[in-house]
């Protein structure tokens, strides 16, 4: 329960950075933090005490494994997170190229 709540708090820290920060790089960092929080929550939900990783090493071994489904869901999501982060950074780089600042309030003023 405390472990789950810590993941939710990490998610909220990321959301805080997205909503209240004015620097574009900080906003991208906030997105990355939200992704970490959700990935970790999924992996923690699938854990069972006294179990091993879901890999069969002998045919007749006792199959007391942790839940493989959240791991399979998160495995792809981690790589996708890198792709989306890179896309957001490309947009930020383009904006910096045009306005010479990362401050979104300044960018809004310079519009026109």
């Amino acid at each position: 329960m405390i472990a789950f709540l810590a993941c939710i708090v990490l998610f909220l820290i990321g959301l805080y950075a997205i909503v209240t920060k004015r620097n574009l790089i900080k906003i991208v960092i906030g997105f990355a933090l939200m992704e970490y929080g959700i990935n970790l929550l999924f992996a923690l939900i699938g854990f069972r005490h006294g179990s091993v990783a879901p890999i069969i090493t002998q045919i007749d071994m006792p199959r007391r494994f942790v839940d493989p489904v959240p791991q399979a869901l998160v495995l792809t999501a981690i790589v996708i997170a890198l792709g989306t982060t890179a896309l957001m950074l490309a947009v930020a780089l383009r904006i910096y190229n045009r306005y010479k600042t990362f401050d979104i309030a300044e960018i809004r003023k310079l519009k026109g």
Partner: peptide
């Protein structure tokens, strides 16, 4: 609770993984 996953779907995957797909890594 943390550490007591129910695994309703996953138990089927673990049972059938090696015999139906042939991969030893269930993930």
């Amino acid at each position: 609770r943390f550490g007591y996953a129910t695994m309703r779907v996953a138990s089927e995957y673990i049972r059938l993984g090696l015999s139906e797909c042939g991969g030893a890594n269930i993930v």
